[in-house]
């Protein structure tokens, strides 16, 4: 009979033990610096190399470029950039291949919406998502 008495003793001790509950929506949950959250995109850095769209395993990135407005300069600048967060798995591969760190991860992770249409984020939205940007990439 000793066996289950030990168990009872253990649970009784836990009555006063430190609780591990996070009060998440009331108290924000801090994520470590490397956390892979919603991407931040800086259009000025993008060189439209298309690598992020190609590496994406779920093909959730769509982008188009346009010729540089300044005729002196070569290359392209970004025109549209969309990430579909319905299928994005936040795998970090787009930020890994980006040669200019135009796309980087942030620590923001709250994506819940009432409509799935809102999960389709465009260039402006991703540009404005500029808080808690990840330092190491």
């Amino acid at each position: 009979m000793l066996g289950f008495a030990k168990g009872l003793g253990y649970t009784f001790k836990q009555l006063t033990a430190k609780k591990v509950t996070h009060f998440y929506p009331d108290v924000p949950y801090p994520m470590p610096p490397r956390f892979r959250g919603i991407q931040h995109f800086s259009p000025e850095k993008c060189i439209v190399c298309n690598q992020c769209a190609r590496i994406c395993p779920t093909e959730c990135i769509q982008l188009t470029g346009k010729p540089h407005p300044d005729p002196e300069k070569k290359g392209k600048i970004i025109d549209t950039y969309d990430i579909n967060f319905e299928i994005c798995i936040l795998c970090d591969l787009c930020t890994e291949v980006c040669p200019t760190n135009a796309i980087v991860m942030t620590n923001n992770f709250e994506l819940a919406t009432y409509s799935r249409d809102e999960l389709f984020k465009n260039l402006n939205w991703l540009d404005d998502n500029n808080t808690n940007v990840r330092e190491e990439n």
Partner: peptide
């Protein structure tokens, strides 16, 4: 794990030839 590779469940931590992140 979250500190190491930035995810809690779907780590995507290893790469062919090594690992993505060094230990912080």
């Amino acid at each position: 794990f979250n500190e190491l590779c930035g995810a809690r469940l779907t780590y995507n931590y290893m790469r062919i030839g090594g690992v993505k992140w060094d230990a912080p």
